[in-house]
Design a protein around this nucleic acid. Structure first.
Length: 591
RNA sequence: GCUCUCGUAGCUCAGUGGAUUAGAGCGCUUGCUUGCGGAGCAAUAGGUCGCAGGUUCGAGUCCUGCCGGGAGCACCA
């Protein structure tokens, strides 16, 4: 936001060092870390160290030398337009803005851009984010939540940061689990139709299949017979598969609607099976893969091909010994399929659980060895699981699943109760809308506000705690902004900026500082694939606002201060709304 | 055995090689409302940043080793 001044000063420093033969190191600028004033700063430690290495500086210790250089630079700079003062402290050069200019510029930028405040310039680069990947014919439980929520937020961030985005889903629609389901359906549930909670019902049938097969393992022969019929594309089985698959997809859409998640493109593993086998045949022909059939499977000895001493990439099995496809077979094909659909894809991102890290490095490396440059553009964003307290992994077999439908119902119900207590004036449809925003936010935020690679322990109590660092806190700050503006009867920004020449409170300075950082945080979140960055700044802004709210009267303030603060409130509200939107969380007007 | 990952306050977690005093939330103790919504604010207490080396002017942050937790490693997905 203040590149111009920064560049100007950087030029002057370079000139100065050149004139005085100082071995200037690259300048790294950062914002000044202490509250109270704004500016940017850089240090001369590296430069002083360079000087020492050259044998100059008469053995003056580096920190002292850095301070000397900073002082010399300061003396040379004189006064700069828009800059209030410059100081040399502990080897740092601190450049301070004129407070009123800075505050005015930040608020104006936020208000002028509105819901686009923080949006990055178009990068003309296409990026695909694949996430969610649920298995059809199974339940959708809390274990599936993280990929969906993380992927969705990542997609929103990448889009907002300026990339051309494709949101892709890759449901597992064929495999042994599907055949088992079809078998149980035909044998025990024939003719039945799903109830309202579709994925729940699909999961029940699947659980039934598992149970029956455990009770009597000889029934597996029936399942295998059914698999054979599928392999021959028996029309009756294929029709049933298509019909029941659609039930699952309808069920997923119910979930995605609840979670406010959308996709542009669906890939299915059933469609990658045949092209995948062709790729494998080609790999065998080119001696990248070794066909050990019928004794063994078709494999790619990656470490051997790469000449590695230590086991790193190991061996990838690309086809079963009976010639049937594995996930690896289909994933090989999927990479190429995506780049056929979008030849200008700059990056293809897979949001998949960390347990599949080796699998993805193997698949991408195999394609790379086969000369497919696309593979270098693929990245696996790994995330850890959501577990239950006591480190219990959720699994449908163990019966430890928390169904997503139930969780969402519970969260929204709990939010409704709480909202009724806090705000008895709300009712009817408005109460429902608000409760949904709060409940869903409470659910999503703890998952997003965590490092991707860290395990989230799912805890009802923590998930439904609306206090402290959680989405409802941010939503509440948004509501309070809104309330002030409503009471002051301010609807839209009138395009003039009231001056910030009065003495700003420390809390106002903090709030403005955080708002100014939002655009660069969006870029960082997109580059690092980390919604956590947005979750953190959203909370920080809400916290700064809460402090401001307590210390600085707005409506009752003197006219000139009142106008300036109303605009600041508007800017804060906008920034929080934009940040929440990137997390897939609604910002209600009342709650 | 090999590979990856995590280890920061009682608990759950932030922390981009750089700044006095390593920060939040929960919990504990205490104060704040005739006032813009108290789902809030403010204050107190709580730390050998797993351990040991190394690189660097400077390390919670980078490198190596060790310890501890978790995960993955040929026909599961």
């Amino acid at each position: 936001m203040f590149q111009k001044e920064q560049q100007l000063i950087e030029e002057k420093i370079k000139e100065f060092c050149k004139a005085n033969d100082i071995a200037l190191a690259g300048l790294k600028w950062q914002s000044i870390p202490f509250a109270g004033e704004w500016g940017f700063s850089t240090s001369f430690f590296q430069t002083a160290a360079n000087e020492a290495k050259l044998g100059r500086g008469n053995k003056v210790p580096v920190p002292q030398k850095a301070q000397e250089i900073a002082e010399q630079v300061k003396a040379q700079l004189g006064s700069v337009e828009g800059i209030s003062h410059i100081e040399a402290v502990k080897g740092y050069l601190n450049v301070y803005f004129k407070t009123s200019d800075y505050a005015g510029r930040v608020v104006e930028e936020a208000l002028a851009n509105g819901e686009n405040f923080g949006r990055g310039a178009a990068k003309n680069e296409r990026l695909m984010v694949e996430f969610s990947q649920p298995n059809t014919h199974k339940a959708f439980h809390v274990g599936h939540l993280r990929s969906a929520i993380l992927g969705d937020s990542l997609a929103r961030i990448v889009d907002f940061a300026g990339y051309d985005l494709v949101r892709a889903n890759y449901p597992g629609d064929m495999g042994l689990h599907v055949i088992r389901w079809l078998w149980a359906y035909l044998k025990y549930h024939n003719g039945e139709e799903p109830e309202t909670d579709i994925t729940h019902w699909m999961g029940m049938v699947y659980a039934d299949a598992t149970k029956k097969l455990e009770e009597d393992p000889t029934l597996e022969t029936e399942v295998r017979a059914l698999y054979a019929r599928w392999d021959k594309r028996d029309p009756e089985i294929e029709a049933l598969w298509k019909k029941t698959r659609q039930w699952s997809l309808d069920g997923f859409n119910q979930m995605y609607n609840l979670l406010d998640i959308k996709f542009d493109k669906y890939y299915f593993n059933s469609e990658e099976e045949r092209p995948g086998k062709e790729i494998v045949a080609d790999l065998v022909k080119r001696k990248i893969a070794i066909d050990e059939r019928p004794e063994g499977p078709v494999i790619v000895k990656l470490d051997e091909l790469l000449g590695n001493d230590k086991e790193k990439y190991r061996v990838l099995v690309v086809l079963r010994s009976d010639g049937t496809a594995l996930y690896a077979t289909e994933d090989l094909s999927l990479v190429l399929h995506k780049f056929r659909d979008y030849p200008d894809l700059a990056r293809s991102v897979y949001v998949v659980d960390v347990r599949q890290s080796l699998h993805f490095t193997q698949v991408f490396k195999t394609l790379e060895l086969a000369g497919y440059e696309q593979a270098k553009k693929c990245a696996h964003v790994a995330y850890e699981l959501v577990t239950l307290p006591g480190n219990v992994v959720m699994s449908s077999r163990e019966g430890t699943v928390v169904l997503l439908e139930n969780l969402i119902r519970e969260a929204v119900e709990r939010a409704k109760e709480e909202t009724r207590k806090k705000n008895p004036n709300l009712g009817g449809e408005q109460l429902d809308t608000v409760a949904k925003a709060i409940g869903m936010g409470a659910l999503k935020y703890p998952i997003l506000a965590r490092e991707n690679a860290k395990i989230v322990t799912f805890d009802w109590q923590a998930a439904l705690d609306f206090n402290g660092q959680a989405a409802p806190y941010i939503q509440y700050a948004h509501v309070r902004c809104n309330s002030i503006l409503r009471k002051a009867n301010v609807k839209t920004w009138d395009e003039t900026i009231a001056g910030y020449s009065y003495e700003l409170d420390a809390s106002e300075i903090e709030l403005i500082e955080l708002i100014s950082r939002f655009p660069s945080e969006v870029q960082r979140a997109a580059e690092e694939y980390k919604p956590l960055v947005i979750a953190t700044i959203a909370y920080d802004i809400a916290k700064a606002f809460a402090s401001f709210y307590d210390k600085c009267p707005v409506i009752q303030a003197d006219a000139n201060i009142r106008d300036a603060r109303l605009q600041l409130v508007m800017a804060a509200r906008q920034t929080m709304a934009n940040a929440l939107n990137l997390l897939g969380i609604q910002a209600p007007d009342v709650m």
